[in-house]
Amino acid sequence: MAGHIPMQHGSKNTGKRTAEEPLWIRVLLIALALGFLLIFLVLPLIAIFIKAFEQGASVYFASITDPDALSAIKLTLIVVLLTVPLNAIFGVAAAWTVTKFDFKGKSLLITIIDLPFAISPVIAGLVFVLLFSAHGLFGEFLFEQDIKIIFAVPGIVLATLFVTFPFVARELIPLMQAQGSAEEEASLTLGAGGFKTFLLVTLPNIKWGLLYGVILCNARAVGEFGAVSVVSGHIRGLTNTMPLHIEILYNEYQFSASFAVASLMSILAIVTLVLKNFIEWKTSQHG
């Protein structure tokens, strides 16, 4: 996962351009693009739903109401509810630090924020295993305190936190850099303290960017497989998230059940995309 392109806040290209290329080239290019989209995006999506309903709606609903499936859904929701707010707070704090203050090692901090994008999620998972497993760095201490992190929910939350950390910060840093700190300074001279300034001036200015980052962070937190797979231990009904549950079902040749759960995640992905587009439209309105 190599990061993403931050939301564009510039004006959109509104000028009408008359195509100078001959008609057949235009048709060919459009057909190519649409064909590509169809084969690689639309078809797989349809396939998921076809496969999910292959054995009828009753099997579909049985699959997603199966206790193991429900516990996987529940665990995924718990992970999302914990990681997304935490990363939203961390992300805002990091972006605030990077953009409103000057200090030594700033570029190093920005690099570190990007680290989770740069390294493979499997490695990210392994890092936590090395730190917190029975034979890991803190293993003995944790065993004495009777705290379980690896092969338990805390490990899954930690791994997801790590992998999704950059989304909010990465979204906000360019936005806040572009906005500068003049409005915050104006607020200070008018007698508002730091917290009031943040609440009344900074937050309204970054709210759409923040929401956008949160949505991306949310999508990744739901779908994260690699890092979570390493730390979870795949204990059914206990440490399986939705992606892990899908894999297990698939490996057990329960294709319909596997695709039924997958279809739930696809619906979430579509909702995310719609929201993302809405926010992009909204920010372009505000210029």
Partner: peptide, 28 residues
């Protein structure tokens, strides 16, 4: 700064974009 009771006018105005003119003036 908060307690110095100075009025500061910035070169590029630094108005609060998301507030109306009267909300801007009332802010302090």
């Amino acid at each position: 700064t908060t307690e110095r009771k100075v009025g500061f006018v910035f070169q590029h105005y630094a108005l609060f974009k998301h507030m109306t003119v009267s909300d801007n003036v009332a802010y302090g």
